[in-house]
Amino acid sequence: MKSDGILLKMEGICKSFGEVRALENVHFTLSHHEIVGLVGGNGAGKSTLIKILAGVFPPDRGRIYLEGREVHFKSPRDAYEQGIYTVHQKMEEILAPHHDVAANIFMGEEITKPLFGGLLRVLARREMEKEAESVLSRVGITIDSVRRPIVSYSGGQRQAVALAKALRKKPKILVLDEPTAALGVKEKFQVLHLIKRLGKEEGIPIIIVSHNLEEVFEIVDRIVVLRNGQIVGECSPSLVTKEQVVQMIVGGE
């Protein structure tokens, strides 16, 4: 699975905020069809790393290669256009709560059709609804109507819509920052199941940042441990125990 080439390579990434060294010479790679879990304590540098990847701020030093080409992200929009789709802690924050599901999935990329022989262009509502339904069913999200507003759905369903919105774009890399932090037990399970499906069946490479080792062990192919701005360990969840990972996170012997 990991032999089919490297998709993303971050090389020698350094980032400081004033006196604080957030990242020091970090090397990080992601292969096609891989789900990587990024773990570490508070201030370990997890979110700095994914923010650099998402184009929120540039690294002080280091290079980023996507599919072998060097890329420079000046803004989150740049990263997004290169196919790196980041969803932050509350995925629903990227949704418009009083708009229906279809409108949200197509936000900013509405389909239009010509009217009066191309004189005007109007929204192609039917077409968007149909496509929204097909994206949702492709990933196995059950939602009773794409015409109902986001506020009428539960937290887990909102997250699912946010993911569907990301999927329609066919992202090269999906970055999930604490995707289940704000959910109840049952919903957490559903969203995890969905993420797993996306990674395994749809073959979308995923970087997942999480505090919850339980869920990391359940879905990822590789665990990367950060501590004090450095990568202190990489392992496969099938070869280590949770205790060993915790040991790496907190440091010491």
Partner: peptide, 17 residues
Amino acid sequence: RHVYLVGDNQLAARISG
């Protein structure tokens, strides 16, 4: 549609391009 979306969630509208 964009007028409504900007009013509903400006941040989401911006992120969505």
